[in-house]
């Protein structure tokens, strides 16, 4: 067979596109319901993780609660899901499905975003959990931060789409995330966020009043992305947080 003819090449390309396209479409639509469900469970796990509902053990890695129980646990611990739109605040049980990327894009266009906020309760303690979304070195980073009514961080969760394995990808490791607990997002009365700092001479993160955590070596830009993401989210929510705050 002469495979060098132009006609053959064009026909081959056409068939190839149709075949590969249909295979991909078939796989994607066949699996989409399962994938969507997995993503929903993941979001619930992440939110619960930030407020300390997880299966972490001392010195172990990140361990979420199981996907088999996550829906029950989510409705047990998350007492309220709010959607803040400008001055109006409404209850919405599907607030956790709101896509922060889209809301931030709306905000940047000057429109009013719909911002989800979760109120959790564990051992008679109230947690205010806000979502975050930003960019790292290569791609998106996101997370959740759980605050108490004094605006002190009770727990965080970070994740990323494509940060460098071994470097920036480690923002989802406990030795990085655990450092944020106990830091305040406020400096006096200003919402300053928490910055990921190099050379703050506090590798064990014992100083909790400096709004800084120790950076990851070799992951400067991812770290800066985390700082910027926290600050941006805190700014988005600050009007509502001011109402909640008890000094």
């Amino acid at each position: 067979m002469n495979t060098d003819k132009n006609v053959y090449t064009v026909i081959f390309a056409g068939i190839m596109v149709v075949v590969v396209g249909s295979v991909l479409a078939f796989v994607a639509s066949g699996l989409s319901s399962r994938i969507k469900e997995n993503e929903r469970f993941e979001k619930q796990q992440n939110i619960l993780y930030a407020m300390g509902v997880n299966e972490n053990v001392e010195d172990g890695g990140v361990s979420f609660i199981g996907t088999d129980v996550v829906e029950d646990e989510f409705s047990k611990y998350i007492k309220k899901q709010l959607v803040i739109k400008g001055d109006s605040v409404i209850d919405n049980n599907e607030a956790y499905l709101i896509d922060m990327k889209r809301q931030l894009a709306l905000y940047k266009k000057g429109e009013t975003p719909e911002l989800p906020l979760f109120i959790g309760e564990k051992d008679n303690k109230i947690y205010y959990i806000i979502p975050m979304y930003g960019k790292g070195l290569w791609d998106a980073i996101w997370g959740f931060v759980a605050l108490d009514d004094k605006m002190v961080v009770q727990g965080v969760f970070f994740d990323h789409k494509g940060e460098t394995p071994g470097l920036g990808a480690n923002i989802n490791q406990r030795y990085f995330m655990d450092d944020f607990t106990g830091e305040s997002i406020m400096q006096d009365t200003r919402y300053s966020g928490i910055s990921v700092a190099k050379g703050n001479n506090d590798p064990l993160n014992e100083r909790k009043d400096d709004n800084k955590v120790d950076a990851l070596a070799g992951a400067t830009i991812t770290g800066n992305g985390v700082s910027a993401m926290i600050l941006e989210s805190v700014n988005l929510y600050k009007d509502y947080l001011t109402k909640l705050r008890k000094s």
């Binding site: 495979t3 060098d4 081959f12």
Partner: peptide, 14 residues
């Protein structure tokens, strides 16, 4: 034996 040599790189990539 059926890949046209002119577009073989694209085919491989796909």
């Amino acid at each position: 034996n059926i890949i046209p040599s002119k577009i073989r790189i694209i085919v491989q990539l796909i």
